[in-house]
Design a protein around this nucleic acid. Sequence first.
RNA 1: GCCCCCAUCGUCUAGUGGCCCAGGACGUCGGGUUCUCAGUCCGAAAACCGGGGUUCGACUCCCCGUGGGGGUACCA
Length: 519
Amino acid sequence: MPVRTRFAPSPTGYLHIGGVRTALFNWLFARRHGGAFILRIDDTDVARNVDEALEPILSGLRWLGIDWDEGPGVGGPHAPYFQSQRSERHRAAAAKLVASGHAYRDFARPEELDEERKAAQTAGLPFLYSRRFAAFNEADAARFEAEGRQSVVRLKMPREGSLVIDDAVRGRVEFAWEREQDHVIQRADGSCLYHLASVVDDHDLEISHVIRAEEHLSNTPRQAFIAVSLGYSLPAYAHLPLVAEPGSRTKLSKRKLAQYLKNSDFKQISEHGTRIAERIGLAPEADTFNPVIVDFYREVGYLPWAIDNYLALLGWSYDDKTEFFSREELIAGFTLERINSSPASFDPKKLWAVQDHYMHALPTEEKLALMLPFLIRAKLLADPPPAAAVETVRRVIEASGDRLKVAGDILGYADFFLLDEPVMEEAAVKQRLAKPGVRPLLEQAAERLRLVEPFAPPELEAACKQIVESAGLKIGDLIHPIRVAVTGKTVGPGLYDCLAILGRDQSLRRIERALPLCS
RNA sequence: GCCCCCAUCGUCUAGUGGCCCAGGACGUCGGGUUCUCAGUCCGAAAACCGGGGUUCGACUCCCCGUGGGGGUACCA
């Protein structure tokens, strides 16, 4: 039987990091076995702006390189891939279940159910519906209808025996049928609920392996009951450990961002991203722009594979040492057997480290291609940028080296090269320029730099060393003031690189302009 | 309440009865290199939830606690 897996998000308007992990595992498993990865949209709940709410999910997956063989945009032999468009299939299944006696029309009112539920709870017993408003024949139905009642369709769950599933990550799990409720599968208006729809769709799409988050483990019995009652064979199940909050074991949620920000690692990565977003003209709202959502990483300039690689390690391992994988290696090495069963908490710092690793390894040309758009959006470069400016950026990238962790970091390293005048940071001026003796030193340096030939790092270094030696100073005494004078900041690439990129004229001009700030 | 799942350094994890007085990575701390920052190099601290079994021998198997999580919807 061919391997067919699926990711079935509902169109919520954003792609959650936990959802990505699920999608990734499904995708990896399908690719590993030469099978198909299907994207289905579980929009049962009749969301209105489906297109709008779907777009971030599709583009997020595409960005991450998680491509689907069937689904929105690509179609496929089992179309449509929107659950809302398959409702006829769901209704037919519900009718079939009623006809075969595996489900029944129920006329209970919500408050009547609540009573029973509460009674069961106070008695310490699991809730089991009495079925006193169940209609097992037309006469019953007519009688209830005469009372003005409306009906839903409920599963008629078995009340003895048990279900055993062999979960690929958890092993044998047993559920007693008597603990399972008569869940509703169809509303009074005829619309069907998720569990029914999901089972029918999985069957229609010939899904062989249902790989999903652990929160669905408890839902499996009712789904299995539906499947078996409909005459389907059961797919293989693999329930993934939850992706938990940083430093916790609770399921990661988009709604609790404020709470996560108390976690310093999380806060750091979040603020770093927000700073970049603001510079490129996004007005990030914490609600939609935060490290729980994939768009955050894309906007800020993370590398998609870094996210994938990090997420693969969340609940899965290859061995006791390997942490970095190419796409091919990951696919080849991925197995369900090595998925962990305990919750894994999302660690922003580790993600950062993985990102750092991949950015470090990226060739300059690729960094350039990634970073230019940020400079353009921040209006530091024209669109399209002049060749000379591109060349400057290339040199800045090389000089900056590992300081650039994400593509958006270029903004803080290239700005003073691209601006006519650097923005002089107040604290930097105070710390390095507004000190006694600095002005004559800078004047002397300017004098000397005028003559350096060529105006290149080794020569610049030699010149600076000469100055400090004759003055009996340390190199830092000279370099720090010059840095602030030409860049406006206290941190940045090596100073000789900075001067060389700026060029003689620009360097001298900036030093001269900074002189008045020295006293 | 009831059902299910889970339990190794702060975090991600390796470990499937002796190879483990527990290995790797991130983070943390200390030190070297250095013009800042970043990097890099060297080094350190840091864990088997508790109690019973089983066994010649348990991190590994079983049971009971405890703790955490998920489910229990006419949400997905």
